[in-house]
Nucleic acid binder design. Structure first.
Length: 288
DNA sequence: GGGTGATGCTGAG
DNA sequence: TCAGCCTCACCCC
């Protein structure tokens, strides 16, 4: 379930468990067998997330590039505090796991497996899992806008890119050239919180609109990274006091809530196609 | 247990 | 613009 916050979270975990270690690398599925063979036994030096991309830097200069696409995901299993346990990458803190009898065999779709004496990390369903040279990485990074989760993210570059575009802001936000790491959920939720209609042309956002939007995007992604999931609804806007975890449809203002009442004004949330994905908006709270 | 949709992107036409 | 990629969680029966 990868938007940028998920990628940064994976990077943080993989860094924690693999950096500085000699890693057993394999491809149970076989589709990355050659690359895995080349990396097997090497020491991992760094894991760099950028937007929705992950770059793993290995001893000897090899770069492993992973892009999860729509379906891809990592799972992590391992021995923590002396117990075998599944380590769910996304939801829980990595060291708060249930005891587990043994690491299960890889699923048939496991493209990549990274192992140490402590953990087994598995990747399935990625769009990209490939070795790159520095030029290859540079080509990818050249087509990515600023990543709001990086401390050095250049908001002015994003503002300038939006001023040059007459396409709807809801399309521009999904364009990884403009800003890297936003997906369909954050598009819907950030525009709602800022009261901006997805169809408004990007170049018609005024300075206030942009500043609010950029601040919202940065804080939403940071909160997603911190919590390990996307929860955008403020407690005051949740209908009833809910104890424990929120269901998926309780975590968002408009995303996947077509036809349901807006949490702020009760107008029915509208859904429509924008940039080949379903966009969601409240026609009252997000006037054109 | 089967069907379906999903937080993404590419390349052909 | 749209099919294709590729896996899995979730819904419904």
């Amino acid at each position: 379930m990868p938007e940028g916050h998920t990628i940064h979270r994976y990077a943080r975990e993989h860094r924690r468990w693999l950096r500085g270690r000699a890693v057993e690398v394999s491809s149970p599925q076989g589709r990355f067998a050659a690359g895995a063979g080349l990396l097997d036994g090497r020491t991992l030096l760094a894991v760099d997330p950028y937007g929705k991309h992950l770059f793993y830097r290995w001893e000897g200069g090899a770069i492993l590039h992973v892009h999860l696409g729509l379906y891809g995901g990592f799972r992590i299993f391992g021995t923590v505090r002396g117990e075998q346990g599944p380590i769910r990458g996304e939801q829980e803190p990595i060291d708060a796991q249930q005891p587990y009898a043994e690491v299960p065999p890889p699923t048939p779709g496991t493209r990549l497996q990274l192992g140490t004496s402590e953990v087994t990390i598995r990747l399935a369903g990625p769009t990209a899992c490939e070795l790159l040279d520095p030029d290859g990485e540079a080509r990818i990074r050249a087509r990515l806008g600023p990543d709001p989760l990086r401390r050095d993210a250049d908001g002015e570059a994003v503002a300038a890119a939006l001023r040059r575009r007459t396409t709807p802001i809801g399309a521009a936000l999904l364009d990884q050239n403009v800003v890297a790491g936003i997906g369909n959920v954050f598009r819907a939720e950030a525009l709602f919180v800022c009261g901006i209609a997805p169809l408004r042309p990007a170049n018609l956002l005024d300075r206030d609109d942009f500043d609010r939007l950029w601040t919202t995007i940065r804080s939403m992604l940071a909160e997603g990274l911190r919590r390990g999931k996307i929860v955008t609804v403020e407690p005051a806007d949740v209908g009833r006091r809910s104890r424990g975890r929120l269901r998926a449809d309780q975590r968002h203002y408009v995303y996947r809530r077509a036809g349901l009442p807006c949490r702020r004004c009760a107008t029915a949330v509208r859904a429509f196609e924008l940039a080949a994905r379903t966009a969601y908006a409240c026609p009252t709270c997000q006037p054109q």
